[in-house]
Each structure stands twice: as C-alpha cells, then as structure tokens.
C-alpha cells in the first residue's frame, strides 16, 4: 500500500518533469518569470542564509577549539576544519534544508493555490503548457541562484569562525589564516557546487510537484506545503549521502 503510493508518486513526478521540459511558448515570458523567481528565491533568502551560516561558522570553530583543548593537534587546524566542514557539508546541506523550508513551502503553496483557484485550468485552456511555464522557470532560477547562496554561506561561515575565535583572542589571526590555507582540496569546492545544484533541483521540483497536484481545500494546501518540506528534506539528506559516496 505504502509502496504502491510511493511508486505512484514517483511515476507522476517523473512524468510531470518530462512535460515540464518543453519549448517555451514565448521565450520572453519564461525569461521574465525566471528573473522574478531568481529575485524571490535568491535575494529573498540572502538574509536568512547569512544569519544561519555566520552562526554555524561560529559554533563549529568554538566547539572544535574546545575539543582540541590541550591536545597535540596544532590550533591552526581550527581554520582548516572550519573551512572544510563548511564547504563539504554545512554550507550546501544546512542552507538547502533551510531553503526547503522557506522556498519549498512557498512554491508548493503558490502553485497549489493556483490549482485550487482553477488558475492552472484557465492557463491550460488558453493553451499554455502549465507544467513547463509554472515549473521550469522555478527550477532554473533555483539551480542558478542557490549555488550562489551556498557559496556565500560558505564564505560567511568561515568569517563566522574567525569572529568567534580570533576576535575574542583564543586564536591568532595568523593561525586562523594559516589553517584556511592548509591542505586545500579544490575538489571539495566542486563537490559543494554539485551538492548545491542537486539539492536546489530536488527542493524546487518536489515542492512544485506537491503543489501542482493539490486537491481539495485549505487543509490539503497546508498538507501539500508540509509534505513539500518534509520530502525535500529527506531527499536532500539521502542525496547528500549518495553524492558523498560518489565523489569521495
């Protein structure tokens, strides 16, 4: 029963995405919509991303400093650890989990509302490919903008680590920067962007799917919005693991 339901949803999700990949009726309309979404998803999320990542950087640095304590590990490792943890895991994963909550629920509610108010039917009757017009611009916008947000998050986390160790004086500026410059693996940055793009795709496509097939009324709309967040989060974690397996 549960399996049936899951397979049904996966099938419908795939076929929705297939019809979303189509030649735009009018390029300029899709372009405009993509820009609008970039603004909403990107600019609209900068503040929360900054806030979260500065704290993550601070916490990582402070806790790692504590764990190092008086051990033999040189203290400049703090900079190195903060950098790698942030780039590999924290920036892409935490940022996208948060964005799934903020952007995902929003997309599901927006599209679901359009479905319930018959806006989607109205567009279909005009001859618009609604799967394409309502979904493709959002996915493109997210896949372009969210990796940028993630890069900002990584940078800000590293600054956060600096703020919580160098500024109070538990670590010197030179040590932190030395740590940042040690053992750098460019592949990790590549991995960060891969994760960010994959997560961005997952969270937008899943949320749009949840909204697109909403039935009923406001309770169902709320449920769709919740499932958008929950399912996106689970998938982000699963793919985090898969990408880690594949790319390390």
């Amino acid at each position: 029963m549960v399996i049936d339901n899951m397979l049904y949803n996966v099938g419908r999700y795939v076929s929705l995405l297939r019809s979303a990949v189509a030649r735009p009726e009018k390029f300029s309309m899709y372009y405009k919509e993509t820009m609008r979404q970039m603004d909403a998803i990107g600019v609209g999320s900068v503040f929360i991303v900054l806030l979260i990542s500065v704290f993550i950087g601070m916490v990582t640095a402070v806790q790692f400093a504590d764990q190092l304590g008086d051990s033999f590990v040189p203290s400049y490792y703090i900079g190195y650890i903060v950098r790698d943890i942030t780039i590999i895991e924290m920036a892409p994963t935490i940022t996208c989990l948060v964005l799934a909550g903020k952007v995902g629920s929003n997309l599901a509610a927006e599209i679901g509302g359009m479905r319930q108010k018959e806006h989607i039917d109205a567009m279909e009757i005009m001859g618009v490919n609604t799967a394409a017009y309502l979904i493709m611009p959002k996915i493109i916008a997210a896949v372009v903008v969210i990796p940028m947000l993630v890069a900002i998050a990584a940078f800000v986390s590293i600054v956060g680590g600096y703020l919580s160790t160098v500024v109070p004086g538990s670590l010197s500026h030179t040590e932190y920067v030395l740590g940042l410059r040690s053992f750098f693996v460019p592949r990790y940055v590549f991995m960060m962007f891969v994760k960010a793009a994959v997560f961005a795709f997952l969270l937008t496509s899943v949320s749009c799917y949840m909204g697109y097939y909403v039935k009923g009324g406001s309770i169902e709309l709320g449920e769709a919005s919740t499932s958008a967040v929950v399912v996106s989060n689970v998938l982000i974690l699963v793919f985090d693991f898969l990408i880690a397996l594949l790319l390390t």
Partner: peptide, 18 residues
C-alpha cells in the same frame, strides 16, 4: 494546445489571476 488557442473559457469562479 493548438486547438485550445481557439478556445475561450469563463470559469464558474472566474479564475482571474489575482
């Protein structure tokens, strides 16, 4: 979709984009 471009529809709830 080709056919639908020749179709207009007034919905019971209007379905104007709000």
């Amino acid at each position: 979709r080709e056919v639908r471009m020749k179709v207009g529809m007034l919905f019971q709830g209007n379905a104007l984009f709000d």
